[in-house]
Design a protein around this nucleic acid. Sequence first.
DNA 1: ATCCTCCCCTAC
DNA 2: TAAGGTAGGGGAGGAT
Length: 1276
Amino acid sequence: MHHDGSFGKYMELKVIKLREQFDAAQLQNPDAKSDIFRGISIYVNGLTRPTHAELKQLMALHGGRFENYLYRDSVTHIICSNLPDTKIKQLAHERRVEAMHGLAWVFGRAKPIPIVRPEWVVASIAAGRLLPISDFQLEPLSVVAPNQRRLFEFRKHAAPTLAPSEMYPVLADAKAAEKEQQQQAAPGGGLLAADVRQPPLAAAPAAAPVPQSVPVHSPSAASPQPPSPGASGAAGRPEGQLGPSPPLAAAQPGPSPPGVTGRASSRSPGTGGADPAQAVAAELRAASDLARGPPRSTRTDPRFMETFFRSSRLHFIGTWRTRIEALMSEVEPHAPAPAPYTKGGPERVILHVDMDCFFASVAALGRPELAGRPLAVCHSNSSRGTGEVSSANYLARAAGVGADMFIAEAKRRCPDLVVMPYEFDKYQTVSEQVYRILMSYTSIVQPISCDEAFLDVTGLDSDPEALAARLRSEIARTTGCTASAGIGPNMLVARLATKRAKPNGQFRVTLGSVLDFMADLKIDQLPGVGWSLATKLEGLGITTVRQVWASSRAVLQRSLGARTGDDLWAHAHGRDERRVEPPKARKSVGAEVNYGIRFESGEAGRAEADKFLGDLAGEVAARLQTAGVKGRSLTLKVKRRQAGAPQPAKFMGHGACDNISRSVTLGRFTADAADLRREAMGLLRALGVPPEELRGLGLTVSRLDNDPASHTTKPSAPAPARLQSSQATQPAAHRPGADDAEADPTDLPGGGLAEDAEAVGEGWGEAHAPSPVRLHQAGVPAAAGQGHNQGPPLCVGKGAGGSSAATAAAVSAGAHPSPADVSEGRPGARRALEADAAQPAARRSLFGGSATGGAAARGGGRAGGGAAASRGRTGGGGGQALAASQIDISVLAELPPDVRREVEREYGEWVAVVAVPRATAPAAPPPPRRQQVAAMPASLAEVDPAVLDELPPELRREITAALRSTAISGVAGGTAAAVTATRAAAAAGAAAAGPSRAPVSAGRGGTAAPGGMPPPHGAKNAAVAATVAAAGGRGAGSVTAAGGRASRGPVATAAGGVVERRGMGGGGSGSGSPEVEEVVELTALAALPADAGPQLRIAAAASHAFSAPSPPPGNRSPERVREALLAAVQRACAAAAAGAASRSAPQPETGTEAQGEQYQSRAEVTAAGGQTAVGEGLERRIGATFMALALWLMGQDQDLEGIVLTLRRVRRVAAAAAAAAGPAGGAEGQAAGGTGAARPAGTAAPVAAAMLSHCQRAVRAVREHVRHKFGFLLKV
DNA sequence: ATCCTCCCCTAC
DNA sequence: TAAGGTAGGGGAGGAT
Ligand SMILES: Nc1ccn([C@H]2C[C@H](O)[C@@H](COP(=O)(O)OP(=O)(O)OP(=O)(O)O)O2)c(=O)n1
Ligand SMILES: [Mg+2]
Ligand SMILES: [Mg+2]
Ligand SMILES: [Mg+2]
């Protein structure tokens, strides 16, 4: 019913109706109309519709209450408009601030207050009853990058469906005319492309007075002061346009009528009638072919992708790079070259140029009516619209309008806003004009975006500012749009200077004044620092650049990562070694759509999805061909609607989603649409996502043949040769059909590689006749491949849509033994298995590549209880043969009976086991997980966090994913936040069967493992589980890894130090309970193999940490557990501190650096911080205890106040221990949340740094958990 | 060490 | 109604 579009309309009508009702009620008398909201008390946050006041009235009329303040404990619901993430974040922030005053109340509640859109009130009234809030809840905070606006960096490319540059056909034809015009050099000449249709465009710039000179801020070197108003008031500047300090400047060069501002405020909002500006906007919108027709989704529009791309601003800027590269390569290099880099050479002079409010400026070109008006560019002009603002001019920004803001919000903030539609062709034209100019000033131009570039002008002008002024003037004269510029000794500083100069100004910072210039910048102004990093840094007490100076580099590295911390440190000091460079070759080519993706359920939906995937494949293939490259790796990206996700805030948006990606290694390079489509369909099918839950699809091809590295045969992808040999040996039946001309071996540039040749000689070359042949013969319907839901595309032959990736689709890359597992457990078996290539190309793609990443079976979907699927181990693992456990039974189940029989014959009883449910309920969804795993905990809260945390990540993910749905459904506990929602989701689609896939001889045929084999990885995983479980002492069955549904992922149960490995073998009958195939006994640490890897050592550390304090089973009250965990933390820290002290004599602070800080190389940091100072075991123990506490706390999120208090305690513990550990005490102050008391560059000893870092990590994990689950930040 | 995969983050 | 793309850097695990 209220599905998307129709829902929106429904709501709109309801709102109107309710408004009428409201008005009427107000006119009559305010007596209560109903009791709908009895017991409900709302608090309204921010701007809403109905308004604050209206909601108050409505509540009064219908029996509810209205609170003006949140910190009243009677509030039951927070009302907040459906707004973009920015607004939600804002709300979260408010809550946090609020918490300082009312923490006890806010966090002490048993349950957090739901945040609901105002429509809930309206609709409830309309319905005459209280509606459930689920459809009206604000989208949960997305773990996916929120729509944030960021600065700096990137690279783009593209090549459209329509041919190279036909989508924005500006330059091709315009070039000649433009050159001619440039020769004429008529100031203000109508330089805009002749082929741009809008008449005003050509006329406008000519008519508009153009600044003869451009304002120059900061006339001479280095002063970090604001641009002087005097300097900026250059002649020819239209009034109000260029003021440097006040952010008010229309980028429109046209003359502004006097008193524009006053005029604006007196205009009636939204009425186009008497307002020429609104009229021109309306007219253009009406004429725009982008706006034609009713909105459509993939469900209703067969040409959706094309329409979408044509209309998407992000597609435009995302593909712009490709277009500019074409331009750059064809412009003759006449420009002077800057001074070369030499040792001790001159200070570089880097110029950064960026157009002012680019799209908005272009919108104003040739439209004098718009001068002096607040302007935004957006598809929608509805005051209730969810279209996003692309660009707003500076007048609009002064009113609070910003990019990425919903148009509804923008118009609320600025009722007078003039909203102009997109004119992509014009942006392209102007962009090219600008670049031609830039390229005439220096030979070194690095394009950044359609409105922005870096130039190296070192030595090209004794007065760089004069050069910049000339350049800006020329841009303004030529395009009618203004640019700002920054000049600095490196790219970083130049970039920051530009921001300072905007709008329509320039600013120079020289080497000597860099630090002064940067000191007070907000940290997120730095490139690479966005919302996430800024939030982390805030946790360290760092919000400004200056505070970074006072922070220890080692702490930064530990908190943010080796590289990230290092870069931040450098950037905060104004250091940036990058050189201005021409664009490098792309490393990947992709296309994705995350808007308007809506498919039917069932077969019809699968066909729709396949069709759309085909469109994407065609698009990517076209772009590859345009770029003249082929690729060897294909990645499918999927957005899947999150379980329980409310209606997306954005019309036709994707809403809250889990993100999943899977890749295949192709057997050879390809740029062929059919290839890509085939493989993509296989990947998609393997994911098992119900089509109606798809919200986004994308394809990316990487490992391109323009990169030599792509040609090397990596261990993970030895397949190509195999493929070839395989094909060679089976030409008739196996070789792709005639349309698969790509089978030409010459397509594999590395064909002559020795590695390949060698590989050909073994392995697949000796393979038996591959089963695909038989499968094919078995009669997969020819139509099967034709893109319409045939079963899984097993068929490789011509015309069959099946691909080997698809075959691999039938494969769960996850729950199978890794090659190591197999080979080590059964050396002889490896070859047997490979040779047993009977495997329909297991993870090989059609071409024989390898598919990694699990093809997870979500099968019945979450409804069935969130079956944890199994997920392939990451990395490596390519090329091995298919194991029975890899078969995705959901795919198998869809096979035509005869084909399925064929497969089963091939795999014997294994398949029969795997396909358990089939026997009794052929197509039925698999039985609930619980039926198969008796010991499965009901929720995360039941899992000993110490145990869970120390599990190998794959297993951990599987468990958390499996339990997540439980948590969501409110049964208990929380999400494991060590795993973000997306990760958990990904895991849900693909979890690891780590322990289960044990070493062992699972064997069909009773192939027992030869003795004396070192424990393979699977065994290690099992050992970890056992060890930790033993240490955690949760009693029998404490940790159980749910196998994929249908026990495909075998089940590992850890209980009291015993791992039971349940294999797939055995019960051929299809009995639901797999037999215990092998039992591995481990007694905690004793079982550690000599070559124990990190996981085991962590387990050992955890074991040590927890064995003592862990309360006996039966008395695990929260208080006891909490105290035990805190004690464990304390002990671990104390041990580390003691160790550090004892070591400090023999190993004093080694080479302290310039500022007295002990700096760890990236390698050292990366090396897991082990031995450097803490001692590896100790370090791991610290980490284990902190994280165990964190994880446990997450399970206690019914008591947020308790969480806060405990976090504060643990922080104090860490701080004290760090202080005791030595000189690091100082830097600690910041980590502990101190306001970054400016301590001179810290001398954090690694020991203290380790503690603080682990502490911070733990605190952050908990905060993330709460933020994600409840939508606000804990103030700790 | 270096590579791999599967993410997340960032920028325009 | 609206058109939430594209690409690279980096990190965490893991395999080799
Ligand atoms: N999230 C974003 C960011 C940018 N753009 C488009 C519109 C912008 O006009 C253009 C250039 O981006 P800038 O970051 O340079 O922003 P503006 O040029 O609009 O403003 P400024 O004056 O701050 O540079 O890219 C967009 O559509 N959406
Ligand atoms: Mg700009
Ligand atoms: Mg820009
Ligand atoms: Mg930033």
